[in-house]
Design a protein around this nucleic acid. Structure first.
Length: 120
DNA sequence: CGATTGACGTACG
DNA sequence: TCGTACGCCAATC
């Protein structure tokens, strides 16, 4: 190991990478939730960790469409992390997802469940 | 190094 | 139906 400064645990890197990978698979115009991703990854109670993973998603490449991840009732809880307050909303509406009062309109209609769509 | 926090969600009264 | 408690665990204080 020597001067290896990577103290991250390999398994946890995988968890974070899995989160990013799932988010990258979300099609345009579709959205999912932190809990859905956590459940898909086998940790239904780790939805908060998904949030933490998303917190660092801006520095990950390829790009992670973080604006397609909202909470379980379709609220844009992460909009504050997009710089401008309405950037997340703007990105979604550009993809045909209507947002009203920081909440996705017809959330169920746009909902993309990795456990169903990815059939793993 | 213990306590707190957090882009969440479920359980329980 | 609504408010509170707690699990999850990395990062920050």
């Amino acid at each position: 190991m020597g001067k290896m400064q990577q103290v991250y645990d390999a398994d946890k890197i995988t968890f974070f990478e899995k989160v990013y990978q799932v988010v990258r698979l979300i099609p345009e115009g579709r959205v999912t939730s932190y809990g859905a991703i956590a459940a898909y990854l086998g940790s239904a109670r780790s939805s908060r960790m998904v949030g933490w993973a998303m917190n660092g998603s801006h520095r990950v490449k390829p790009k992670v469409p973080a604006h397609r991840v909202v909470n379980r009732i379709g609220m844009l809880t992460g909009k504050h992390f997009f710089g401008e307050q309405n950037t997340m909303k703007h990105l979604l509406e550009k993809e045909g997802v209507k947002v009203e009062d920081d909440k996705i309109v017809d959330f169920k209609k746009h909902f993309w469940d990795p456990a169903v769509e990815l059939l793993l």
